[in-house]
Design a binder for these strands. Structure first.
Lengths: 210, 210
DNA sequence: AGGCTAGTGACAGCCACTGACAATTGACAA
DNA sequence: TTGTCAATTGTCAGTGGCTGTCACTAGCCT
């Protein structure tokens, strides 16, 4: 890797870390691009040469995680039922994701930024749109696994929408709670996924909540 | 109603219609607030006195629809299973919603704007966030119906997330297709909701798609 | 009729973002 | 090494969304 390449990487990382640090401490809306550029000691114009917009810095790490999840789903054995494959892929990918993140920014900083994403309307909106795109990808993968065409058979999109919905609910609850550990997230996710069956029962009153 | 009040209503409607017309013909990003204000023959500053932002004009009509849906769910008999109540509420509310919309803008214009929302990243993101808020409301209503606490029992949020996921999939497919009629939407929705059960089956290969 | 106030326009300014151009800096061959 | 080329950067100017301020006008109320 060149001196030039290394310099670029350093600048990008400096901008990224500066941005996330500022978002986590001061808040997203309260941070201007000029602040970020100043903190990384480059011009505002340079910031926009590394990131398409302020938003992109906030989603740089989540994008990593998404990539891992997609690959984890692809790697699942074809025998598994779709929902099972999605569930196992997500649960197992979280372990490995953390290492990849830590190379870029401290996990703890990432957690704090995640909270900011969930509590900042503009960022939450962007997050949900990204999630929708991810779901589209996953639906295609599931369709392939099952030898179906997602544009004809509704089931791949439905099962992914269901799964995605549950994940988003748990994400929200997790980020609103006070235990931001990986274990808490894992616990919440399995609990909620286990409730999908009961939720579809005709009459809820026969079986109380856990 | 005052002359003053009437004048205000007229100004707001003029701005709204001008905005939607411009969005539908020229596109959202290609329309500036100055364009909208000019088309309605008021200053840009006045535009911002009627709408919090450009985005709000695009979601003015959808907001109406959401209100109707919430009320329709509230009006469902308590005996129905949750998913059934949601399904019937949505299907039945569409009929009545259209009349309310037509008082404000032509339905046909609304349809064209809806397409713009689905195909404009910034608007789609906002739409998904609004949908998430709506789901939260519906989860509370469902929890009440069943005499549960949505913060303790996961099932209300899960069932609403599932339902919302399916609705969003159908919205997307509908707006991407070429039959923008109400009947097409209704058809698509019932078909997809009917596939929820099959989608949860362990092995999809036993039963092909319809 | 005349004072009161809600609604408006004009103006200035902030912030995200972009295009254009000039200055700088690393890469690479002579 | 040095000179040349290309990549990277900073500066400047401009656009569009959005907000605060202030003076002015138009409808309301007694």
């Amino acid at each position: 890797m060149n001196l030039r390449e290394r310099k670029k990487r350093r600048t990008r990382d400096a901008l990224l870390r500066a941005a996330l640090e500022l978002f986590a401490t001061r808040g997203y809306e309260e941070t201007t691009v000029d602040d970020i550029a100043a903190a990384a000691d480059v011009s505002q114009r340079t910031f926009f040469r590394y990131f398409a917009g302020k938003e992109e810095t906030a989603f740089f790490v989540p994008r990593l995680a998404e990539t891992h999840v997609v690959e984890a789903v692809r790697a699942r054995p074809p025998g598994e039922a779709p929902l099972e494959a999605l569930r196992r892929a997500v649960l197992e990918s979280w372990d490995t994701i953390n290492e990849a993140i830590e190379e870029l920014v401290p996990i703890e900083l990432h957690m704090r930024v995640y909270r900011v994403i969930e509590s900042t309307p503009a960022l939450l909106a962007a997050h949900l749109r990204r999630a929708a795109e991810l779901e589209e990808q996953l639906a295609q993968i599931i369709a392939e696994r099952e030898g179906l065409d997602a544009d004809v058979d509704p089931r791949p999109r439905i099962i992914v929408a269901l799964f995605g919905g549950v994940i988003r609910v748990t994400e929200r609850l997790w980020s609103a709670g006070d235990d931001l550990s990986l274990d808490a997230m894992r616990q919440l996710t399995t609990t909620y996924l286990d409730q999908v069956g009961p939720a579809l029962a005709e009459n809820w009153r026969t079986k109380p909540s856990p």
